[in-house]
Amino acid sequence: MATDKQTKIRTKIQDGVTDVLVLVSHPMETGLRVDPKTKEKVPAHFIQKVVFMLNGKEVATTDLGTAVAKDPLIGIKLKGAKAGDKLKVTWSDNKGESGSEDHTIGG
């Protein structure tokens, strides 16, 4: 499903290790919060899966629960990635929404 939620990726190579930071703008509702106006529980809406692909090969998968903060910022490290390598990050949430972002690792 298409999404209006933004995905941003930032990478930095340092001593042969690539720092990867992914920021998704997502409400991450736990399903426990009560809307102050309607006094009703806000339904859960959160990212469940973030998949990292380096040059088409899966390198890491992170499963998230409801406890991850709003607008999740997920960091991982890759070894041996070079400048110019293609990184693709795909996420999907519990309502079937998903998004992905392509990124070329910089110098």
Partner: peptide
């Protein structure tokens, strides 16, 4: 629910960072 996040790796370094509630 105690589990915050679970990351599984197949080629990445042993590192994970996030913000949580």
């Amino acid at each position: 629910s105690p589990l915050v996040a679970h990351a599984s790796f197949s080629g990445a370094e042993g590192f994970f960072s996030a913000r949580m509630k």
